[in-house]
Design a protein around this nucleic acid. Structure first.
Lengths: 347, 347
DNA sequence: TTGTAGGCGTTATCAA
DNA sequence: TTGATAACGCCTACAA
């Protein structure tokens, strides 16, 4: 009994077309096809080159990135780990990073932690196992081990918005101190002088800590302003309302500086429940520009983060490292932009 | 001069530890390790099993998914293509899908089109080249070819929210007609009887078309209501304002039904510019629940889509197909939930 | 300039 | 029950 004579043909039909198929069709060796693909410069006979070229076209051949990765150790994959995709800031950064990756011929593999910082190690390992060439991290970095291990393997890591304890890596972020100063100065200029900085509990998130510290520093250097810090926890809206009432009892020109969009949402909800009006009963500036900021109350003044640039720069840093750049960890801080609306209007 | 005697040691240090390292350490063959990993049932000598086990633990070995994918043709990767990550609906679906994937031991590879439908083919090919086992598509499907090719290769495709012309595939979506009926009936009950359905130009997006058609059907079956459809294009806010003014001129109880969150944003902006109040000058219901809906004006009534369930079900469909389920394309329609706020309040 | 052969890390087939 | 060995699709010395 003759065994089936056509296992290769069958395989080709079922699977995708491989370099061997191209080689056969062109009547050359696999090596020649590979060379044609990678280093066209290495003078191939024009005739052979065209033969290979048309075979590739005819078969619609594309190299398998997985096989390439396996062989060369490079995958043209960049891993992006986000603490929470639900966060518009992260999504905006993601888009910037994605564009930059695309332009450089890289593919972005996204891993979302869903705000479960336990999963960070798992995420990094998963990504590493797919041989991502580098990592962009917008995470807590509670578990320094995983990222450090990747870095030690010589794969560059870039941190966005959140530093990781002692990790040595490029870092790209909003200039938090500058943003706070801008916001605070704006509020003061508009006559709001009893300030409350509302933030999520810092829980080790560096950007939150930096913003609080910057706010305190701002107060110290502006004696004409009075201010306090309030940590708003997720479930407890009553505490926030009480705090706002006390704030208003303290001064005639009270204002809130919200440390991010999540807090802005909470403050806006509380203000609605209290029946107050932004820009009259309470001044307001929030970090993070959102599509809905113009629509809440009379419009909310915000500090817009350069999210697209953050994503692009993070990617750029990564690609430079990939290209061999070997300098100490860099820190890139970008300015926020004040978007004035009526929540901070002059008295 | 002796050449370096330890290329393997070096390679192991620089790269990751491989199955060969484990085999060596345990004093067995690679095949045995592989068997231990995959089919523990195939009775291994307990002693060998433990030896392998501890070698794996000692080395911290994890199999390389890429090598596995290369060998078995399966990658434990699911591809998700989104027309626009900026869309909160897509992100919410993404989260649901991601959870389901994680639970099943799959990794989600995200590709974002950035609303550039030209890139769909490119996205699908990129994903396919990484041997994703299946595809979840939340896209226009203008270019039927790419997805169809994947499907033809026996890789399941699931469509979310948007159908693709003639493509035969599982489809998971909001029950658009039901949602429109619910919203319309609610407005009528509350006394709003001069309706305007505002939508983005349909541009071949099936969900948009279905919603418009459902609205027309609703009008036809409710003679007491009067209504019209308005297509709002991205840049032209003036046209929308004019339309709203005409609407209000037509009837004493005018209301808008917004076909999604993008439109809700535009309508809210127009209403703010006109100085109107939702729930007084204009009734309102919008499809898509958002975090900011409670904060705009007196609170916006919405139809919340079961985004998490959509994502999970899409994944479930995919996994069933992967497991060999072979039935004709299914269509899974989920109900939306009416979230009543004051924008639709009774006269 | 082109082809042969070996190996990347796995799994699967076949002997032993 | 275990171990060689040959692929998977690709790249790259090295040889021709």
């Amino acid at each position: 009994m003759p065994t089936k004579p056509s296992p290769p043909a069958f395989a080709a039909a079922a699977g995708r077309t491989t370099i061997a198929d191209v080689a056969e069709k062109a009547g050359v060796s696999k090596a020649t096809v590979s060379r044609f693909l990678n280093r066209r410069d290495e003078l191939l006979t024009p005739e052979i080159a065209t033969r290979v070229e048309s075979a590739i076209a005819a078969l619609g051949y594309t190299p398998s990135p997985m096989a390439q990765a396996l062989k060369r150790g490079r995958s043209r994959l960049v891993g992006l780990v986000v603490a929470d995709v639900t966060n518009p800031f992260s999504v905006a950064v993601l888009r910037g990073a994605e564009k930059a990756c695309q332009e450089a011929g890289y593919l972005l593999m996204l891993f979302n932690l869903g705000d479960d910082s336990q999963r960070e190690r798992e995420a990094i390992q998963a990504l590493a196992s797919y041989h991502v060439e580098g990592l962009i991290l917008n995470t807590l970095g509670r578990d320094a081990g995983a990222a450090a291990a990747v870095a030690r393997q010589g794969r560059p890591v870039v941190l966005v918005d959140r530093r990781h304890g002692n990790m040595q890596a490029d870092f790209v972020s909003l200039d938090n101190a500058g943003a706070i100063r801008t916001a605070g100065a704006h509020l003061l200029e508009c006559g709001w002088d009893e300030l409350l900085f509302v933030t999520e509990p810092s829980e080790g998130v560096s950007s939150r800590e930096e913003r609080v510290a910057a706010f305190r520093a701002f107060l110290a250097s502006h004696p004409q302003a009075r201010g306090a810090v309030f940590e708003s926890v997720a479930g407890d809206s009553q505490a926030l309302e009480r705090e706002l009432q006390q704030l208003r009892a303290r001064g005639r020109r009270p204002a809130v500086l919200a440390s991010n969009a999540v807090i802005t949402l909470r403050v806006a909800a509380a203000v609605a429940r209290l029946g107050w009006n932004f820009g009259e009963d309470l001044g307001f500036v929030g970090i993070d520009e959102t599509e809905w900021a113009p629509l809440v109350g009379p419009g909310l003044t915000t500090i817009a983060q350069p999210t697209d640039a953050l994503g692009r720069l993070a990617t750029a840093c990564l690609l430079e490292r990939l290209a061999g750049l070997n300098v100490p960890p860099r820190q890139i801080l970008l300015q926020g932009e004040l978007v004035v609306r009526r929540s901070s209007r002059q008295a």
